[in-house]
Design a protein around this nucleic acid. Structure first.
Length: 125
DNA sequence: TTACTGACGCCTT
DNA sequence: AAAGGCGCCAGTA
């Protein structure tokens, strides 16, 4: 308890902290209901680091080898399947989303605004 | 060792 | 209105 950090700012550099960030991201993504989608920024904001939306993407990449995380339910703020290239096959992400009942057209989630699942709102604590 | 890129998003021009 | 730049953190060259 030596230093007092701002309430909405977590210790970024602290060895295990960054790994905790990844784990936290996975936890949120795994809570995304089937048929819904969320965004990197929404997760980052929910974790208290909205500026680090990029790191959420890296967390997903790591999640691919760690746990079964429905990364296909995570898209960018425009509803585009920006991470489709990391699903082994170019169509894997779309197929997984359609399997969840989400319609994808031209690498974009249809009715994205309606299907958008915000952890800070749906999961609001 | 430094520099650049990258599953993003917001601000400025 | 649209386009570009900057910031975040980590991994890789």
């Amino acid at each position: 308890m030596s230093k007092k950090l701002p309430k909405d700012v977590k210790p970024a550099t602290g060895t295990s902290s960054q790994q905790q960030f990844f784990k936290d991201v996975w936890d949120v993504v795994m809570q995304v209901p089937r048929g819904r989608v969320t965004t990197y920024g929404a997760i980052a904001a929910y974790l208290g680091s909205k500026m680090s939306a990029r790191m959420v993407g890296w967390a997903m990449n790591a999640a691919h080898t760690q746990h079964h995380v429905p990364a296909q339910r995570v898209v960018n703020r425009m509803g585009m399947l920006s991470g489709k290239a990391h699903f082994g096959t170019p169509t894997r992400m779309q197929e997984l989303l359609e399997a969840d009942g989400v319609t994808v057209k031209d690498d974009r989630v249809l009715n994205f605004t309606t299907l958008f699942w915000d952890p800070a709102k749906e999961l609001e604590l």
